[in-house]
Computed example of a mutant assay.
Amino acid sequence: MATALPTGLVAGTYAVDSSHSTASFTVRHAGIAKVRGTIGIAAGTITVGEDLESSSVRVELDATSVSTGDANRDQHLVSADFWHAEERPTWTFESKAVTAVADGYVVVGDLTINGVTQPVELPVDFEGTAKDPFGNQRAGFESEIEINRKDFGLTWNAALETGGFLVGEKVKIALDVSAISQN
């Protein structure tokens, strides 16, 4: 049985507006604090089908654009210790299925970071649609997941004198996406 689209969302192709969308992350540092950062969204396409099940998402992130507020840390993150951004500058998410759940939607797909692909389930909130002052029809989406960085080959760490490690394994990723109808 086909699931109807959310109210206000119409079938068609939507281009992710990189200048009004963000991909951010949070990871524990030294077990006592959190480091937050952003990664630029290079490109993205949301294809909304006539029903939810025939919809799809593809997004590319620019790993070289990381910003944590500390240039030295940013350089370390893009190095071979972590992201190998010189060799693998693009991270991707490509959906396999879109379904409705009681409190929103779930987009199941493959997330590729550092050349390693893992299946993920993104819980998605549809934030609605609006026409901007330039006549563009926009749609808004939000998602937040937690991944284990080691699942993506991101294993660099340093032991602390007091026990534990410098960088936490769990990484929270939040997406705030504004997409413009191309119809």
Rank of each mutant, 00 (worst) to 15 (best):
160 L>W: 08
54 S>T: 11
9 L>K: 02
143 S>G: 06
53 E>M: 14
87 E>C: 09
28 R>T: 10
89 P>K: 02
85 A>E: 13
167 V>E: 01
94 E>Y: 07
170 K>D: 05
71 A>K: 14
48 V>F: 05
40 G>P: 05
26 T>P: 14
157 N>K: 01
113 I>H: 06
133 P>Q: 06
40 G>D: 06
95 S>H: 04
50 E>A: 13
117 T>N: 00
19 S>G: 05
183 N>K: 03
159 A>G: 07
86 E>S: 14
104 G>T: 01
32 I>K: 04
81 D>I: 05
76 H>M: 09
122 L>P: 01
137 Q>N: 11
35 V>D: 12
120 V>D: 00
18 S>T: 01
175 L>Q: 00
152 F>N: 05
79 S>W: 02
136 N>Q: 12
173 I>T: 03
19 S>F: 03
143 S>V: 02
2 A>G: 07
158 A>K: 06
87 E>S: 14
6 P>I: 03
152 F>S: 08
153 G>L: 15
64 T>P: 15
58 R>H: 10
25 F>E: 02
179 A>E: 01
34 K>M: 12
30 A>F: 12
24 S>I: 04
153 G>H: 10
87 E>I: 11
37 G>D: 12
13 T>S: 12
5 L>C: 04
25 F>N: 09
81 D>W: 02
4 A>L: 06
79 S>A: 01
86 E>K: 15
103 D>V: 14
56 S>E: 11
34 K>W: 07
153 G>Y: 11
144 E>I: 08
52 L>A: 04
122 L>R: 08
154 L>N: 05
67 S>P: 15
18 S>F: 00
40 G>I: 03
57 V>A: 10
147 I>T: 03
59 V>L: 08
53 E>D: 10
173 I>S: 02
59 V>R: 05
157 N>T: 08
102 A>S: 10
94 E>C: 01
66 V>S: 14
152 F>V: 09
